[in-house]
């Protein structure tokens, strides 16, 4: 395949950055998108130019490290697929492809296509856990969990923390990420004691990080490689209102 790439190049956090054009002549349709970038980088190194920096690790769609907004869509055109699992056969021969980093104040660009997503860690640190010090756990079967609750909790817990929801959201909100974790833990009986504190503290951390507010556009779910449902944002809102206006948070 022949391709024309327009890739965001930015030397460092303070650099202004710009789109730079590259041509690739011989890309296998069986290559993944990141392997196509590997080929580009090999060519750049051979020419003595700086290769494009981009985040990636597991390349099997689960670590959440790869990002990239491809032709205006986080993780590219294929639904429910991370960039690392996107293959070039999904593009046309001769196509022009724009490659940009996630854009959000809370995800500042570090270099080229690499952004800093530590704001997500801060949100989890603010309450995205169940306090269970090692060794204190009761027998696993002491607390049965209704299967529908466990299944629902799992669906929320599938979030890979990639940040595509933020990248896609016209408001730059991380409500889907937040709602997924609040729902996962809030659906489990083990998560009940901290449920109301958790939602308030995590939402504060979300707002402090500079993410935008949710206007229920649904772009997040559409972009999510795991298809995390907007239902969890409703659940987040419900828990937040119960915690605050409802006075559940003591």
């Amino acid at each position: 395949m022949k391709l024309k790439l327009r890739v965001w190049r930015q030397n460092g956090p303070k650099d202004k950055g710009k789109m730079v054009e590259y041509k690739l002549d011989d890309i296998s349709p069986d290559a993944s998108f990141l392997e196509m970038l590997d080929v580009l980088n090999e060519e750049l190194i051979a020419k003595g130019e700086e290769p494009v920096a981009f985040d990636h690790d597991c390349r099997e769609g689960i670590c959440g490290m790869c990002s990239l907004v491809i032709n205006g869509t986080p993780h590219g055109p294929e639904k429910m697929t991370t960039t690392c699992q996107l293959h070039m056969r999904k593009f046309k021969d001769g196509e022009t492809i724009d490659v940009e980093p996630w854009r959000a104040k809370a995800f500042p660009v570090v270099k080229d296509l690499v952004v800093d997503r530590s704001a997500f860690d801060d949100i989890i640190a603010a309450g995205g856990y169940i306090t269970a010090p090692t060794g204190t756990a009761p027998e696993a079967h002491a607390t049965p969990v209704p299967k529908p609750d466990a299944d629902k909790a799992f669906e929320a817990a599938e979030c890979i923390g990639c940040g595509a929801c933020v990248a896609a959201c016209p408001n730059g909100s991380a409500s889907l990420f937040l709602g997924a974790k609040v729902s996962h833990l809030g659906l489990m009986p083990q998560g009940q004691p901290e449920r109301w504190d958790r939602v308030v503290n995590m939402l504060e951390a979300h707002d402090d990080a500079g993410f935008g507010g949710c206007t229920n556009t649904g772009e997040c779910t559409a972009a999510c490689p795991k298809g995390i449902s907007q239902d969890f944002i409703s659940r987040l809102n419900s828990d937040y209102l119960k915690a605050t206006a409802g006075g559940k948070k003591k």
Partner: peptide, 21 residues
Amino acid sequence: QIIDQCVAQGVPFAREYGGLL
């Protein structure tokens, strides 16, 4: 003990209809 610990942390293991693991 590992299973006990992980369940206490809220790990959503697969469950049967009776609610057990």
